[in-house]
Each structure stands twice: as structure tokens, then as C-alpha cells.
Amino acid sequence: MTVTTPEARTRPPSTTTEPRAVRTGLIGLALLYVGLFLFLPLLVVLTGAFSRGVEAYFTAIREPYALAAVRLTLLVAVIAVPVNVVFGMAAAWAIAKFEFYGKSLLITLIDLPFSVSPVIAGLIYVLLFGRQGYLGPWLLEHDIRIIFALPGLVLATVFVTFPFVARELIPLMQDQGTDEEEAATLLGASGWQTFWRVTLPNVKWALLYGVLLCNARAMGEFGAVAVVSGHIRGMTNTMPLHIEILYNEYKFAASFAVASLLALLGLVTLVAKVLLEWRFGDELASNRTGAERGKS
């Protein structure tokens, strides 16, 4: 029998770990890899943004076309995210609280947009609503613009962010079962009361987490939006598209300045994610199942 001092307990037993040199080597390799492939690109965005000085930075992000792009990006997200939240909650309620045939097929179909290339996500709406699309002639006749206009941008964004909220809520609500909701119903609560007072408080952190991921993707989406946008400056240019145009015009500092705003959004999302996992890890389904289901 060995005496277990706190120190001995924290030190891993030598039979189930690697020699010190191997450990150090692997840690070094992991740090080098992540540093080279993830940290440096982020650093390049920030230094690139300020390469012409602080003044040029603020000029670039206050320029009218940049402001229009910011406004449009926010507008698209403000429409697309709530729509997907409502869908995610409805889908999670039906899937997690009831047993029915074809459930696993339905879950697979909800995940489908993640496996579709963003360019194809844009293309399918052009084929439906574009001038040569199935509904094109009818739309033209009634003077409704979807492609190269706000509705197209929203549709493409809704498509690529479709599964985010649902896939955070479904596994968690499945784990929580139906006992609490059944008790509420038997005590006389209406469906809405049960949802607002029992279900929603149980899943609020997972919901917030899903909304954050959904929003980050909605504001940063590039490929799908590029296909349906038509790149009309001040009209249908979102921030990622504005970044592309500035970059292709060799206005690198301005391009990185706008990019730094989106990078900041990404960083805030990451920090919020770490905080949520650290503080409410037990209440987030993603800790157990998210990675297995493959995040995207």
C-alpha cells in the first residue's frame, strides 16, 4: 500500500503515461501546429487591420459602403437567427418529447445543410427564384426580387445556419426526458405554460449557445451569400462580401479592418462558449454529444 498524499494523487502513475521527453515533444508539436495554423492567421488579421495606423482603420470602417455592409449583415442576422430559433425549438419539442416513426431520419435531414457546400446552398435558390429559375418568370411578372436582393440573402443564410439551434437543443431535451413536462400538464398547466415555465428554463443555456453559433455563422457566411448577392455595393453587399471586394482592389488595410470586426465577433463567440461550458457545462448537451455528432 502506498500513502496517497495529494501530490501523489495528482501525479499520473508512470505505467500509464509516456516518458517525459515524449510528453514534452507532443505538447510542443500540438502548440506548434495550432500556433502556425490557427493563431498566426488571427494575428495577421489584427496587424493587417492596423498596418496603416489607427486613423486609417477607423476611416475604413466608417466609410459609407462599409457601414452599409455592417447594417445589411446585422439585418440579415436579425431575421435569419430568430427564424431558426423558432424552428429549432419546434423541432426539438416534437423530436425530444414524443416517440414516433422516422425520428432518426428526421434528425439526419435536419443536419443535411451542414453537408451541402455553401455555393450549392446559394445555387439552389438561384435555380428556384433566379431569372432562369422555376419561379423566375412569375416573380418577374409580379416585380418581386428575391435573388440579388435581401430575401435571397436571408434565405441563403437561413439554409446554412439551419441546424445550429436544433442540434444543441435536441440531444439535451432528449436526455431530460418528459417527466417534468408531464407533471406540469397533469397539474393543469397549458402547453404554453409548460413550455415557458418548465422546458425553456431547463434548456436556456443550451439555447443561448446555439444562438451564438448560429449568429456567428449567419454574420460570417460568405459562399452561399456570394452566389445570391450580385455584389451591388451599398445594396446587397454583406461584410464578408465587402471584405472580398476591398481585398481584390488591393485595399488590404481596409479589407483587414472590416475583417477585424468579424474576427472580433468570432473571438467573442469563442470566449462566450468557453464561459458557458465552464459555468454551465452540465446544462449543455454539447459537452456529451456535440462533438460526437460532429460540429460544423
Partner: peptide, 13 residues
């Protein structure tokens, strides 16, 4: 980070 950083930003970086 690659999930959170928009692809266009990653691209120019």
C-alpha cells in the same frame, strides 16, 4: 477558431 472565424476572413489571412 475555424468554426468561429468567418471563411472570408480566414481566406485573406
Amino acid at each position: 477558431l475555424p468554426f468561429a472565424l468567418p471563411t472570408a476572413v480566414a481566406g485573406i489571412a
